[in-house]
Design a protein around this nucleic acid. Structure first.
Lengths: 222, 222
DNA sequence: AATTGAAGATTGTAGGACAATTTACATATG
DNA sequence: CATATGTAAATTGTCCTACAATCTTCAATT
């Protein structure tokens, strides 16, 4: 009976709300990879009993954000560079499917929206507005996956994205790679606009694989 | 304190064991899609309290085998043909990645094992032993995914396979499609043996997509 | 036959309890 | 001084009971 936000939204079940909240806390960085998550602390934080919290943790474990070690508790998952690379490989193929599906079914409106994202990113590059670029970049990817109209694909893709956020993401995108990246976006979007499924598929896969290589060559240096 | 199998294996946590057991029960068909799962019934069946059972159900929900409706309980998930088709599309791309990865790294031993599976399926076809074919077929797919050496890929692929088992799988593979299917296996395995990543990728994807179309054309008729 | 309504069942959550295990810390030992 | 050891405290894992909220069932009423 403490956090009012939780009291108000009784439409969804308590464990779901707790799950979302813990997820938010993890992705925001308040809990860092490797941190132990204490159940009692969460009961105090949310004002609930341990039951709903343990249920939420179970769900989070399945989504790959936390890890449970019997009798020792749950820990925010720690992602090795190797695992991140594995995730990128899978993500590349899922994103390739998204590109293909969207190329086959994109409406004129969707194509216009996609081109809008690319233009916005061009503007962000011109203004050297890194944050704005990142936001639009994320929105473009999200849009493509959502409009591919395959909920299974969307769920798995989003799960991977979440997991990747556990990986240290510093220096992930440097100055000139914004330009390179948006050139790839342009190719992706125009392939979709041309309803060329094969070309879209290849462009989407290549885009993620190049992002993977940028990530790897950056982290090798540290 | 009833089921001895659960008492013995206290090394893993109780919710994990319960989860595995419920999953087994669902996949075996004892609980059918759409069935409601009663918590108290499970407490009697496993001799545990509701806590661990609710945790297990949470985990199963995340893996897509059950569906929770607030205040109404959990139900074995019902898969529409449309959803099955979506799963097949994703599976095709994941399997394509598995084929590519394995082509790049397959050892001679692994190649020999793969060829053994194909030969065994040829023998099963010759003997008209459908069950044997199905078993070897499953083993081949599992082997490829496991030896692709990408745990993220493996986890997502296996999750899809489990979900597909919720779909009515009658008349999924008819007589002559065994031959067709194993011809495709042959192409997959030889592409891997040649360490030809592109060819393996294409062959693996095509194999799943053809399976999808066989499924669809069969279910259209019913 | 359709609607209503009360009784019963089930879910969702709380909270206390306790064994088993792990962690932390202080003390003894080489 | 560093290491080993032992004890106390904390934490997890599980059970139990309880009860409000909601859903389901089924009989009675219109």
């Amino acid at each position: 009976m403490s956090t009012p936000a939780i009291e108000l939204l009784k439409s969804r079940s308590l464990p779901m709300l707790i799950e979302e909240e813990i997820q938010r806390v993890i992705l925001s960085g308040e809990y860092e990879p490797g941190d132990r998550i204490n159940e009692k602390e969460l009961t105090l934080r949310f004002g609930t009993s341990r039951g709903p919290i343990r249920e939420a943790l179970r769900s989070l474990e399945a989504s790959g954000l936390i890890e449970q070690i019997p009798n020792r508790g749950v820990f925010v998952r720690r992602l090795t560079g190797e695992m991140a690379a594995h995730i990128y490989d899978v993500r590349a193929f899922l994103f390739a499917l998204a590109g293909r599906l969207l190329a086959l079914r994109a409406t004129d409106d969707e194509i216009a929206t996609l081109r809008g994202f690319v233009r916005a990113m061009d503007a962000a590059i011109a203004a050297d507005d890194f944050d704005h670029y990142v936001r639009e970049n994320f929105a473009l990817h999200e849009f493509i996956v959502a409009h591919a109209a395959n909920p299974v694909l969307a769920a798995q893709y989003l799960s991977l994205i979440k997991q990747l956020r556990l990986y240290r993401t510093r220096s992930l995108m440097l100055g000139d790679s914004m330009q390179e990246s948006n050139r790839e976006h342009h190719e992706m979007v125009e392939a979709i606009a041309a309803h060329d499924a094969d070309r879209a598929q290849a462009a989407h896969m290549a885009h993620v694989m190049r992002a993977k290589h940028r990530l790897i060559s950056n982290t090798e240096l540290t």
